[in-house]
Design a protein around this nucleic acid. Sequence first.
DNA 1: TACACAATTACGAGGCGTGAGGGTAT
DNA 2: CATACCCTCACGCCTCGTAATTGTGT
Lengths: 133, 133
Amino acid sequence: MIKDIRKSNRPVYMMGIAAKLAGMHPQTLRIYERKKLVCPQRTAGSTRLYSDKDIEMLKYIQELTRELGINLAGVKVVLELEKERSVQEDRFDQIREEMDKVREEMRQEIEEVRRQYRRELVVFPKGKLMRRY
Amino acid sequence: MIKDIRKSNRPVYMMGIAAKLAGMHPQTLRIYERKKLVCPQRTAGSTRLYSDKDIEMLKYIQELTRELGINLAGVKVVLELEKERSVQEDRFDQIREEMDKVREEMRQEIEEVRRQYRRELVVFPKGKLMRRY
DNA sequence: TACACAATTACGAGGCGTGAGGGTAT
DNA sequence: CATACCCTCACGCCTCGTAATTGTGT
């Protein structure tokens, strides 16, 4: 399976590049890190390295702050809630899938019952049915 | 069915009382109303009347702002997300209930098939089974 | 050696709670 | 007519983004 490059976790961009990609001030990225909103990897010399996923997150946080006017405490909670929601949606899909499976199993079981009775019945010349022995 | 008084929508408290009940400044309540967070009913003379539900909401918003430090724009989004979540949970319960129903229906259908075959078979003296005619 | 990063501090704009003042409903 | 409401304006605190400074990594 080929990984989606746009969402890779591989740390690649230094802070300056990341800031330009996200259209933000480098200092802002440090603030976000202190508030545990976007936490990039570090090199041995403690230089930050941002992944594409981090960049996406930065852009999304920007939407929440600039367009909706949410402060960082709010952003944190919103991100948590949306994560919970995605988990919930997964569970939802899962249970629906399970329901389809149950339907199919039940259908097959009914079929099996029918087949079993059919196997036990034989047709006699005059069109009558009898148990096989 | 007796309504839960603690969550009633009936408008009863004037602003001063509501503010005391929620432990907030009356002016704050006006701000929340302007931001469409808590919208009390009004009398003909445009005096605000808060319900118990409104008071509950005020207390909850207070938690979000004071304890979590979320600003009002954030509170608005958080409230929306939690509403969505509750809807999603309802849908979840509903589909689980539906699944139970499907199971039961299928079980009954299997039973019905068995019964039908049993009805078509009769026992002959020598223990053999035949179709009813 | 030059350039970009790390960390801290300071400043300005805006959000939010609180208070004051004048007018109106009950 | 007294009290509590209505509304608007103004002040102070806090948050957040930005800039400046000094030191370090590459």
